[in-house]
Amino acid sequence: MKPTQMDRLDFVSSIVLTIFGIAILVESLRMPRLENLKVNQFTVPGIVPGVLGLLLAVCGFAILVRSVKRGGWRLGITGQDTAAWVTSAPVQRSAATLGLTLLYALVLFPHVPFNFSTPLFVFAFVVTAEAMALGRWPKWQAMVTGLILAVLAGLIIGYVFQQLFFVRLPGG
């Protein structure tokens, strides 16, 4: 049987999902267990991420087995295919999202007060997404909408975490 494009996509994505699930499981096992506080073993911080990571890995592996049975491992990728994939709109949007998120997580969030970094991130994300969708910089109305959304998101997220969840935020 000749593999379909979906079988090949399933093969690649299942490997990513399986590895990601295993990484989540490993990191959840490294989280504190709080034995010294005599915390119930079913309420430790790593239990939910660990279970979700395990389920993600199992599901990813199941998709991998199915795609291998269907011949998905025969990718048949050419240089032109790779170039078309890298320059495709979904990959460009994903790269922009990943770049902005990493900038926020690694640079802004740890070093800039939350009340400034989060609205800045939301504004940059909205403007970037709008620019990529339009193929040009958005008009001033979209910039104002992004600014309003950013301020509201910063206030609401800050309130929820600090007042409802009692989480201290950086610079908060």
Rank of each mutant, 00 (worst) to 15 (best):
R66K: 14
Y159F: 15
P170F: 13
F42P: 00
G60F: 01
V86P: 10
L17N: 12
G76K: 12
A133K: 05
A23V: 15
M132G: 02
R33G: 05
T87Y: 13
W85S: 10
S88Y: 03
L25F: 05
R70I: 14
S94R: 05
A89S: 08
G71N: 07
T128F: 05
L64G: 05
L34H: 00
A84P: 06
E27L: 04
V65I: 14
F125I: 00
I156Y: 07
F161H: 08
T78Y: 01
Y159R: 02
L100G: 15
T101F: 08
L52K: 00
L56Y: 04
A62I: 07
P90W: 08
L169E: 15
P32E: 12
I148W: 13
N40P: 04
V65M: 08
F114I: 07
F166M: 02
C59R: 11
R30T: 00
L100F: 15
N36F: 07
M132S: 09
Q5E: 03
V122E: 06
P3V: 10
W137D: 01
G46W: 00
L108C: 06
Q5T: 15
H111Q: 08
P110L: 05
V48F: 13
K139I: 10
K139G: 10
T4S: 14
M6P: 03
I77S: 04
F11H: 15
